[in-house]
Design a binder for these strands. Structure first.
Lengths: 330, 330
DNA sequence: GTGAAAGCGCTAACAG
DNA sequence: CTGTTAGCGCTTTCAC
């Protein structure tokens, strides 16, 4: 706004074109000129206007990410790594929080699409058709979701679920409850896709409860229902829900894992401080964020991005909320 | 990029100016014309280019926030409420994570300043002079920090600390450790500003340890030092650190609060699920975020913003990590 | 290697 | 109430 390219040009006694080149393609300017221009740039503290530049190049120098809940450490973990990678590539990051509302989510995408060179979408909520539609607006990369023809970075939920089931089965559990996340959530489907066959395979009966919102507060009613279902283990959709359930169980005097085993999903840092520390599945957040940024940027520059969808591995982390089934053979 | 204002103008058989007005100042266009234009806008899916608009108006329609660590729920809690408020006012939000590094922080501010109408800075790290300098670049609002002449929203750390001290003193503690946050952190100073006089007043001896980085992992060495210091209570700089310390203490078989009391600061959601649930001080994050956005926006539109700095109250939340001093009179 | 000039898409006077 | 016109700050042909 204050110091423009003309100020620099005048002071360096060159044309604005030369200033522009000195900054953008240093090798198309003589060394002497470049040094002089750069010195003036430094002296005046000149920074090109992103808006003006954007108007011409069509690039904004930003990427956007929209998530369902910034209160969930899973998404902020992703955001942190996205921000870091974006910075490395010289991009700013715009963030939108839809508060789990599909309509808001869509509006956010439509708005941010114009303000960013690419958009990362963590959207359990929107339907496939709409996503395909949205993908026409701007380079789009999905996180933890697959939609035909759209680039995505996913983490292996089904595999993680299989590990949980095997773990529980090995501990002698035969009747467990699964606390569903949002019904429309892709991640929830994936959990089920891993859970059901694995349970059948191990002869585990699964009582499905919910759906519940993936919020800490919703862990309480979920825990109550699980208790009423007469199971020996509870598999929660994610850590946040498991943590909420744990708090409720303690409130009701239920011994975890003595009377009831509990598992989460995500391995938030705080899973380690719960009482007791939570058995859960670790998600490769840092890698996923980095990967998704590269994916959307490649797409934005029409690079042949390589694989359209990449699946990153997950890993069971056994802590202290799972134990042998009560009254079992020990 | 694709459908421009001219396309709309042509299709609606009006001039581009009319389209612009129909969108921006609906009351300066006849109802009939407006409806026709709006219909075409709808039909074509036209959205004004933020870059072009920005170039003229000088407004970007975004506000930026830079924080030291997106992995800390304290900052993401703030971010969530900032995002919500920004959306209400029609602004996008840019986020920068400095990873606790002052140099990165400053670079982030300088970059984002050009891309936003205002900037919220959570900067424990940068020195006052630099902040004053930065404030010349763009409307700036500080969060949890006071610098002369600059708008700020702060939460009453000192007051919270006083409450903790009074609580601990009432439980019979006489020798406590304080785990310092970053030495240069304004919040840490504020904690001390509340702590020292209150401790003196209550006849409490304080062993100051650290500084430590306000990260979960740094809770472990902090806990070890506190243990070596032979105190009966440990006051951590914040919850994240307290949670890390708690994990370490459990690892070492120390009974909290039987042998040692522990307090945090911030009241993150996860403070309630720790083992045991953490006694801490609740910070008015939601209100602070909202307030800061309004402050910076008022500043950006040269409104007489009212109070330059607003202090929001904090509140002690007693949970289960504090108890009577061991061997006390019970 | 450098300069002049033409816009990028839009808003804001200024006329009518 | 509506149209014409002049840029916002910059990059990018196109000449020289």
């Amino acid at each position: 706004m204050r110091v423009t390219i003309r100020d620099v040009a005048r002071r360096a006694e060159v044309s604005v074109a030369t200033v522009s080149r000195a900054l953008g393609s240093p090798d198309r300017v003589s060394e002497a000129t470049r040094d002089r221009v750069l010195a003036v740039v430094q002296e005046l503290g000149y920074r090109p206007s992103p808006a003006a530049r954007s108007l011409i190049t069509g690039k904004t120098g930003a990427i956007a990410i929209v998530v369902p809940d910034l209160g969930n450490p899973f998404f902020t973990g992703l955001l942190k790594s996205v921000q870091a990678r974006a910075r490395e590539t010289g991009h700013a990051v715009l963030v939108g929080d839809s508060d789990e509302d599909p309509a808001t989510e869509q509006e956010l995408v439509r708005t941010l699409a114009k303000q960013a060179d690419g958009l990362l979408l963590c959207s359990p909520g929107i339907d496939d058709a709409t996503i395909t539609d949205l993908a026409g607006l701007t380079p789009l990369a999905l996180l933890n979701r697959r939609v035909a023809g759209i680039g995505a970075t996913v983490m292996d939920s089904a595999g993680g679920m299989r590990e949980i089931v095997a773990h529980l089965a090995a501990l002698g559990h035969r009747r467990c409850a699964y606390l569903n996340g949002p019904a429309s959530s892709w991640s929830n489907h994936e959990r089920l896709r891993g859970l059901r066959p694995a349970a059948a395979h191990h002869g585990l009966e699964i009582v499905e409860l919910g759906p519940f919102a993936p919020r800490y507060e919703d862990g309480a009613p979920a825990a109550d229902q699980a208790l009423a279902a007469g199971v020996t283990a509870v598999l929660a959709y994610n850590d946040v829900m498991a943590l909420g359930a744990l708090a409720r169980l303690r409130e009701r005097g239920v011994d975890v894992p003595g009377e009831l085993s509990v598992t989460g999903f995500d391995d938030l840092v705080y899973a380690a401080v719960s009482a007791p520390p939570l058995t859960t599945v670790a998600m490769p957040l840092a890698e996923a964020g980095r990967h998704a940024v590269d994916l959307v940027l490649a797409h934005a520059s029409a690079d042949p991005a390589g694989r359209l969808v990449t699946e990153l591995p997950t890993r069971l982390v056994v802590r202290a909320t799972t134990a042998r089934v009560p009254g079992g053979l020990g």
